[in-house]
Design a protein around this nucleic acid. Sequence first.
DNA 1: TTGCGTGCAAAGGTTTTGCATGGCA
DNA 2: TGCCATGCAAAACCTTTGCACGCAA
Lengths: 137, 137
Amino acid sequence: MASRNIYHTKQQEELLKYLRSKPGEHHTVAQIRDHFSRGDQTIGTTTIYRQLERFVAEGTVRKYLLETGDSACYEYVEQNHDCTSHFHCKCEKCGRLIHMDCDELQEIRTHLLKDHGFSWDAGRTVFYGICDRCQPD
Amino acid sequence: MASRNIYHTKQQEELLKYLRSKPGEHHTVAQIRDHFSRGDQTIGTTTIYRQLERFVAEGTVRKYLLETGDSACYEYVEQNHDCTSHFHCKCEKCGRLIHMDCDELQEIRTHLLKDHGFSWDAGRTVFYGICDRCQPD
DNA sequence: TTGCGTGCAAAGGTTTTGCATGGCA
DNA sequence: TGCCATGCAAAACCTTTGCACGCAA
């Protein structure tokens, strides 16, 4: 942990407050920029990138790069949120990102580690497929 | 399937031959371009993008967007390769991408579908973590 | 000969960097 | 006051598109 958060600024506070108000939602930088451009407190694009980078380093925010490849997504990580026990599933049809709490996940992790020597980071892995709502019957 | 491969060109042949000669390996467009720039048959960057796009549409090549976010990766799909029965694991330390044949995968798919209604596409999902070689003891 | 493929140049989009200014401590 | 954060401008990338030319059929 090299850089520490020494100064607290309005932009930083507003950005974090916004992300925290939408737990489990994913935001692109463009979306964040647009959101604040409509409010009274605007935040420069560069600042959004830099603050998000800091949040990610601190573990406050999680960064995802989805298969669409358009742009990165950022998501607030709740404090008491056990990311080791839920899947992240992305529907390739409707684009919805689903948080799926499930015990099976731990079994997969154990299997990967014991039988394949692979220490899986479930929090960074996104499962692609078709969600329940978009199933063709 | 809209566009069909009507004309066969040298560039297309060379590109496919190269990818096919490295099964299970991931290549970025830059790497492919560099490879051919050293040989006698050069291929323009635009052509690489367009041919890869076509291969992906045909199912000959698979496209990945990794967490590094730098650029897309492309991988030749072997004809008799059952992508429904192996994991794609990406080591966050050494960057290696591992193909992990495993029956457990089918169980996960069944579980996701039955208990969560999610039709998982394992071929498009990359598991992030630390590989066996990079494990801290 | 027809028309698709190629590749240069340029555009489009996201993310990063340089630098002068502004604001927190 | 000292120093970090901000944000504009510009650069750095990756990828896509327009267009004239070349090559396969």
